[in-house]
């Protein structure tokens, strides 16, 4: 393969990782705002958070991407395509992860909040010192699923001509004609990236569990749907 084609692959890979990492970070921000917002005492905060999670979970990410790339500019906001891509992916994954945040916060035993009240912590301290450090540990395994879903969703940006990993593969397929090989290689590539992310999250999970004095059994394919 010529070095020109190789450089497409590297650029595509870099963009895919960029979209995943920044999409995840921004998505995390949305998830915490909306997830905590849903248990706010203020009704309007709960309302906004609920509308956000319901709408963006009901909206196909590809359609969202088209909206940001094609419709928003007609209102006069010109977004860099890569940033539009990150925003679309983050809005989408954030809505799913918000449910994870909400569930994990709700799952902290009520006795923990009561003990924090008995020690006269302020509401902010209760959340920051007692509830969140425990809830975050419970969020990591479902966040791992969210992260892999996000990685998969980044491939959609190739349909709006952002040169990600999938887009690079399309270029190579067009210039070499090696259809089966290229797409199979692309799948393996995504599989390897997913494995790297999963392994990293697994490490994070073990570190977090240690902060609560627990241990997590090791295992390579640790990603499992968490039974409700």
């Amino acid at each position: 393969m010529s070095s020109g084609l190789m450089s497409f692959i590297w650029e595509g890979l870099a963009n895919t990782l960029l979209l995943t990492v920044f999409g995840a970070l921004l998505g995390l921000v949305f998830a915490f705002i909306a997830g905590l917002g849903r248990s706010s005492e203020r009704k309007w905060v709960r309302g906004i958070a609920m509308v956000y999670t319901e709408v963006f979970r009901g909206f196909p990410s590809l359609v969202l991407l088209f909206v940001l790339i094609f419709i928003i500019p007609t209102f006069g906001f010109q977004l860099n395509p890569l940033i539009a891509g990150i925003l679309a992916l983050a809005l989408n994954i954030g809505a799913y992860a918000a449910e994870v945040v909400r569930g994990a916060v709700k799952a902290v035993p009520p006795g923990q909040l009561e003990a924090a009240i008995a020690l006269n912590f302020t509401p902010v301290q209760r959340l920051r010192k007692v509830i969140l450090p425990q809830a975050v540990v419970a969020m990591i395994p479902p966040f791992t699923n969210n992260l892999i879903e996000l990685l998969k969703a980044t491939s959609l940006v190739s349909l709006v001509y952002i040169s990600d990993f999938t887009f690079a593969a399309q270029l190579i397929r067009a210039s070499t004609g090696e259809t089966a090989l290229v797409f199979f290689g692309l799948l393996v590539g995504y599989g390897i990236i997913a494995l790297v992310f999963t392994t990293a999250m697994k490490l994070l999970e073990r570190m977090a569990a240690r902060s609560l004095g627990r241990t997590v059994p090791s295992g390579l394919f640790g990603r499992k749907e968490v039974a409700a």
Partner: peptide
């Protein structure tokens, strides 16, 4: 007012973190 009062619980409720 609460600052003068505290409680020990049946199930301890220590902070695991």
């Amino acid at each position: 007012v609460r600052s003068r009062i505290t409680m020990v619980f049946q199930h301890f409720n220590l902070f695991p973190n």
